[in-house]
Amino acid sequence: MSGRPTNARLVALAAAAFALFNYPLLAVFDTDALVLGLPLVWVYVLAVWTLLIVLVGLTLRDR
């Protein structure tokens, strides 16, 4: 992978990350509900976080 497309993908990913970690999307998951006994918002943030790590890793995997 090289140059422009990778860069564009990463910038888009960053924008998505910033949006997913903030209001209003964050508020959607900020409820009293528990998932597997855990607060929904906590699970949501950890899930997005994990997804981002995977996507960045895939985008930048060696060549």
């Binding site: 990463l10 910038v11 960053a14 990350a17 970690f21 943030v45 976080w49 981002l52 790590i53 930048l60």
Partner: peptide
């Protein structure tokens, strides 16, 4: 407390750039 670590997560995605 999480934003202090979510911020870096966002930045890291554009590290390559």
């Amino acid at each position: 407390w999480l934003p202090i670590y979510l911020g870096p997560m966002v930045v890291v995605t554009v590290w390559w750039v």
